[in-house]
Design a binder for these strands. Structure first.
Length: 248
DNA sequence: ATTAAAACTGGCAAGCTTAG
DNA sequence: CTAAGCTTGCCAGTTTTAAT
């Protein structure tokens, strides 16, 4: 999944932490940095487990989630530069008087007012977010597009595929996990290839024979499938063709 | 412990400035 | 010119601090 998708699909709690938990790793929402569970990470004479180290990573490279978020574009935060400056000072725990002096503003009540205005904004944001969430649940008929794999070589709107569409295609061309026919349309091919690529484990290296064996179990013309998997950017191979692996 | 004073907070209305 | 954003003053409560 694209990093920005990951970022925006994160829950409020995940965003606050700045990273999400996957099956065997943690991923930084801001830069995609990964720490793997079970690994031990050294930093300044200490050792950290994956989750703890992610905290170290964020502190080191992003300062804090707050700092990262406040640095985002106006379009994304909905905040004016002035509001950002105020929030930063609030975050530092300064009181109205200190802020008034620091920003060289005449009255502390101005700061007070901004505090009020920002809280109002918070309430609005919360109700809006909640409404949008409710809308999503309600609107299950709305087409939800299956995300396109990010290594896809050719991507445009033709590849927007809804879940139901995908299900139909899979149903039509697969029976008992084997492919009955390689479809003629690119869109269908994409779905089929994605389905097939699920049989491969990420991070695994496959010998050519090994891969052929797996593909043969799915479709007789495994060479065709192999070629298309590469062409559509699902897998990659060594230039001599001796090893294959799933693209990330 | 009670009370008075000071400091802080939330909120409203209004005027001023500026980008589009 | 208009709307949005910023600044300010004022009032009403609340909380904290100081004084008795």
């Amino acid at each position: 999944m694209e990093l920005s998708d990951l970022f925006w699909s994160a829950s409020l709690e995940e965003m606050k932490r700045g990273f999400i938990e996957e099956e065997d790793s943690f991923i930084c929402l801001m830069c995609g940095e990964i720490t793997e569970k079970g690994m031990v990470y050294p930093y300044e004479d200490k050792f950290y487990l994956a989750e703890k180290y992610m905290g170290v990573h964020i502190e080191r490279t992003h300062l804090s989630v707050f700092d990262y978020l406040i640095g985002m574009d106006k379009k994304l935060t909905g905040l004016t530069d002035h509001q950002k400056r105020l929030l930063t000072l609030f975050y530092q725990g300064k009181n109205d008087k200190e802020i008034k002096e620091e920003l060289d503003i005449g009255s502390a009540s101005t700061i007070r007012h901004h505090r009020f205005a920002l809280k109002e904004k918070e309430r609005q944001a919360k109700t809006f977010l909640t409404m949008m969430e409710l809308l999503k649940e309600k609107d299950e008929n709305a087409p939800t597009f299956v995300p396109v794999h990010k290594t896809a070589t050719m991507v445009d709107e033709r590849y927007n595929i809804t879940q139901t569409e995908q299900d139909q295609i899979v149903k039509k061309y697969f029976s008992d996990g084997t492919l009955t026919k390689f479809p003629p349309k690119e869109k269908q091919r994409l779905v089929i290839l994605r389905e097939i690529s699920k049989q491969l484990k990420k991070d695994d290296m496959y010998e050519e024979k090994e891969l052929n064996q797996i593909l043969k179990g799915i479709y007789d013309d495994y060479v065709l499938i192999r070629r298309y998997l590469i062409e559509y950017g699902f897998i990659d191979r060594k230039s001599d063709g001796s090893k294959y692996w799933l693209k990330k």
